[in-house]
Each structure stands twice: as structure tokens, then as C-alpha cells.
Computed example of a mutant assay.
Amino acid sequence: MRSRGAIRRRLRRDDLSEGPDYALVGVIRIPELRQSPGRAIGRRVIFAVVALFFTAVVVFLDRGGYRDVQGDQLSFLDSLYYSAVTLSTTGYGDITPVSPSARLMNLLIITPLRVLFLIVLIGTTLEVLTERSRQALKIQRWRNGLRNHTVVIGYGTKGRTAVDAMIGDGIKPADIVIVDSNPAVLEAAESDGLVTVRGDATKSDVLRLAGVAHAASIVVAANRDDTAVLATLTARELNSTAKIVASIRESENTHLMRQSGANSVVVSSETAGRLLGIATMTPSVVEVIEDLLTPDAGYAIAEREVDPTETGGSPAHTRDIVLGVVRAGVLHRVDDSAVEQIEVGDRLLYVRKGSSE
């Protein structure tokens, strides 16, 4: 492993988090309701056509107040032609309003319609030109209000499953930030309604963009153990109080993860192996475990504060099925003699009904 000093020197290069917000457009993506380009253009074209025909009808109804170069009375085609050249500000001058009523109508109706018509026609161009500034302002507001959220490093199978579990437990998608370097993965996360940050999660400036310094919890679901260790170390240096939960493939790296600052370490390969072994003999046990790990259906494992009426009693005699007691940050099994009586400040790990029931 590299020394912490070398890591810090490497991570300080190209510090994006210190740059202006407009430089982060494309790096930070905040999901929003999207409309297909074809539909957006189609709506503008419809608005333009409606404005054009409305203007032509107004002109035709007051055709007596207009005069063309030949002195003939205006037909509806002439009115449509006049409306088109007027709204587009071409103005050939071959048809002109001569009566006071026609000029008043041009002032009160035709001119506002001309402005609206031009806005509709160039709306797409204006939207493209202002999109970068709009996104920069949106990113600035998001960063200013980013507090007590959850940062998920990696949105592969493990990260996506972790997010699904958190949302099933009631965490809002707006309170989850995904960090990954794969554009396709980030596209999927954004379509799921999640804020995404593109970059290497082992770099401190990328984690600062995700608001790690103000996060309540951090989930490290990287595909490689060395990446997970370095990302955990970087996250812990930025936030000394956040709860960090990390997943690794090999159990021999568990001590590295804990030394790097992880509060909880899940060995994915061994956990899957145990479930496979159990399933060969008692597959129903695996079904129960999967049920407990799925918060939106059946039963789920949860943690809650102790009710004042429960203090002094046994954890086994509460209204819920208690699996363990968390005291002073340490988890005790329910049959541990150290937690024979529930105390004030304890937290109970129990089985509850899923959110869909």
C-alpha cells in the first residue's frame, strides 16, 4: 500500500471541487424530467403555426383596413402571406395597414404575436445557449443544500442492490449520490432518479463533489478490493464521523478495510458461498434470509430505539422478535449475558414486517 503522504499528493492534483460550478456541468448530473428533442421541436412548430393562422384570421377580419400595392382587397391567402412576412420581421411593404383600427390592431396584437413567434422559432437555440448556465446554477443550489445524505461508490450489481435496499427502507432517492467513472452506469443511475458524480472515487476532489464531507453514510461497492480500500481511506480522511460500509471480495482484505476506516465490512464472495452451501441442504433457509434482506416485502431486519417501557426487561420479552442489542456501539446477541436487561440508550435489532404489508 502507498504511504498516506503519497496518496494525499496524488489526490490533490486537478482539484475539481475548487473550480467554478460551470466547470462541473457534465461531471455532476442531477436528474430531471426529460422531453424528447422531437417532441420539444414539434411543440414549438405547433405554437408557431397556431400563432401564424391566428394572426392571419385577425388580419382577414379587418382586411378593409389594409391595402396592397395593387389596391385589391385582401384575400385569406393575402392575409396569411402578410402574417408570415410580418411575424418573421421580413416586411416587404407590399401590404400595409392604412386605417387607424388596423394600425391599432398591429400595435396591440400583431406586434406581441411577432415577439412570441420569434421566441418560439429560436427557443431551441436559446435553450441550448442557456442550458450550461442553468445547469451550473442547479449544481450550485444542490451543493449548498447537500447534508446528511448517502454516498454510494460504484453502481454495479452490488451498488444498485444496495440503493434498492435503502430506497425500500424509506431513504429518498434525492438523498443518495452515486460516484462512478463508467458513463453507461451513470446513465442508468440518473434514469433511476439519482444524482451522479463522474470520476475516480479514490480521488479526494471527486468525493468532495459528492459531498462526502457532509455525508451521514458512505457505501463502498467498488468492483476491486484495492479500489475499495483506497476509496475508504480517502472518504474517512474527508469525514471522520460518517458510517462507512464497504464490500470486498476476499476476506483477507477485511483488516485493511477496517484500518482504512470502514465501520462494517461485507465479504461478498464468502457470503454468497455460505448461501450456496446452505441452499444445497435447506433451500428454505435461504428463502427466509432473502426475505429478511428484502425490505419492501415479507419481513425485514431493522433497528430501532428502545421504548421507555422496555427498559429493565429482557430483550426476548419485547413485542418484537429481537435478534440483538446494540449497546455503546457494540452489537450483542440476544442471548449474551451482558444484555440480559435492556438499558436506556440501547438499540434493538429486530424483525419487522416489510413496507408493503
Rank of each mutant, 00 (worst) to 15 (best):
I109D: 00
D336A: 06
S240D: 09
A235C: 02
V288K: 01
H332N: 10
K353Y: 00
V245S: 10
S99L: 02
R347Q: 12
V58H: 07
R319T: 01
E187N: 08
R4D: 15
G19Y: 15
V115F: 06
R4I: 15
Q70T: 13
A23Q: 11
G123R: 04
I7C: 13
R114N: 04
T280V: 12
T130C: 00
D72C: 03
V212G: 12
L137N: 10
R274E: 04
G64T: 02
N223H: 11
R352Y: 01
V229P: 14
I110K: 01
G329I: 03
V45Q: 09
V197K: 08
H317E: 11
A272L: 12
D205C: 06
G261F: 10
V330K: 14
R2E: 14
S204A: 15
A174C: 06
V288A: 00
V206H: 06
I244C: 11
L194C: 05
G329R: 01
Q135V: 06
E290L: 13
L52V: 02
P283M: 11
L33M: 04
R44Q: 11
T90Y: 11
V220G: 02
L292S: 09
Y155R: 06
M166L: 15
V152I: 13
S264P: 05
A162F: 05
A235G: 06
S181I: 11
A328K: 13
V245L: 12
R67N: 11
A188N: 10
V285T: 14
K243T: 15
G93W: 06
L52M: 04
V195P: 04
R224K: 14
R198Q: 13
I28T: 14
S204I: 08
P308V: 07
S269P: 04
A210P: 13
V185E: 05
L186G: 11
A279T: 01
I289L: 07
G42Q: 10
E187G: 11
Q70C: 04
A165K: 06
L52R: 02
V245M: 12
E250L: 08
V267D: 00
R143V: 06
L113R: 00
A201F: 08
A216C: 14
D164K: 14
R352P: 05
N239D: 03
R103G: 02
A302Y: 07
I167W: 01
R8W: 11
I95T: 01
V98Q: 12
G345E: 02
S314V: 03
E340G: 14
L186C: 09
G93Y: 06
G193R: 04
G38I: 07
A6F: 14
T282C: 07
N239S: 05
L104C: 02
D335F: 11
L11W: 15
E237S: 10
Y155F: 15
F117A: 05
A102L: 02
R2Y: 14
G65Y: 00
V128F: 14
